[in-house]
């Protein structure tokens, strides 16, 4: 029983990490409709930025979130404007090649600059275990859970209540109709992509104290993030959050009760079943949104 509860706690914490990484992808994938394979590498860039700020200037990783979020927003804007935008009307495959190419280029750039070694932000205060009876959870994980909830609620409110949010939703629903209604679609795409990347910047600041930065750290997360986004119904923030929680719990429980090397098999099996029986995702809006 003790083990089960520890595994559930662990799954929720893991889920909150997947959530905070996937929220940005939901924006990019759901609105701009670009399968961004470089999403994980945005996380990697963010984690190196957090590390550099920490190691060179002694900035606490959570404080580093501010400049890193801005940096990633700008990176996202530039990539959308100069790489994705020229390809928006091109074949989908070409967009995928562009983001895969970008991903490979970023990984190798990091290899060149930092080498294959791992760099770790030392934040003993955030790695402190909180003990709840026999169960343990890290301070950094609790902060991550709170931050991912706040981010999801905040983004949802932003999308529902502001004019810009409405314009983003309109663009996601129907690009042509939005254009006819006077929405500057190109600009919305740039903002959405920037926002999506900025969310990853926040994720980087929260993940850094828990995981060391390596050139390939992004690939660990990006596949899971795609599963989460599709599970969550593509552009629902709450959907993505719940999807992330499900994957986190499945990950944690199947690794213990089945086998640690088979957990991916379990959640990809769930993923395939959902694609077959409910292709719009667990929390999709119905047909036409996929």
């Amino acid at each position: 029983m003790d083990v089960l509860i520890q595994l559930l706690i662990n799954g929720i914490m893991l889920g909150s990490m997947y959530a905070i990484i996937s929220v940005g992808l939901t924006l990019i994938f759901g609105v701009v409709r670009v399968v961004n394979f470089a999403h994980g590498e945005f996380l990697m860039v963010g984690m190196y930025a957090v590390y550099l700020l920490f190691a060179k200037l002694g900035v606490h990783p959570y404080v580093a979130a501010v400049p890193v979020v801005i940096l990633l927003f700008l990176l996202g804007v530039l990539i959308q404007r100069f790489i994705i935008q020229p390809l928006l009307d091109a074949d989908e495959h070409i967009q995928i090649f562009a983001t895969v190419g970008l991903s490979t280029a970023l990984v190798n750039l990091a290899l060149m600059v930092f080498g294959a070694d791992l760099y770790s932000v030392s934040a003993p205060d955030l790695r402190q275990s909180l003990r709840l009876g026999p169960y343990t959870v890290l301070v950094g994980q609790v902060v991550m859970l709170a931050a991912s909830l706040a981010l999801v609620i905040g983004l949802h409110a932003f999308m529902q209540t502001t004019a810009l949010g409405r314009a983003i939703r309109a663009t996601a629903q129907n690009r042509t109709a939005a254009l006819l209604m006077g929405v500057r679609v190109d600009r919305i795409y740039i903002i959405s992509f920037g926002l999506g990347a900025a969310c990853v910047g926040l994720a980087a600041a929260l993940v850094s104290p828990l995981f060391p930065a390596t050139p390939t750290v992004g690939t660990y997360f990006v596949l899971t993030a795609f599963v989460v986004v599709v599970l969550g119904g593509m552009r629902s923030m709450y959907g993505a959050f719940l999807g992330a929680m499900i994957i986190g719990l499945v990950d944690s429980l199947s690794a213990y009760y089945i086998a640690p090397d088979l957990k991916e098999v379990v959640y990809f099996a769930i993923f395939i079943l959902i694609l077959i029986f409910k292709p719009t995702g667990l929390f999709g809006f119905g047909r036409g949104t996929e």
Binding site: L7, L14, A255, A259
Partner: peptide
Amino acid sequence: LPYSAKSVDLTPVIL
């Protein structure tokens, strides 16, 4: 216990 080197969580292995 085998596990993937890409794993982001080894808590189940440790438990």
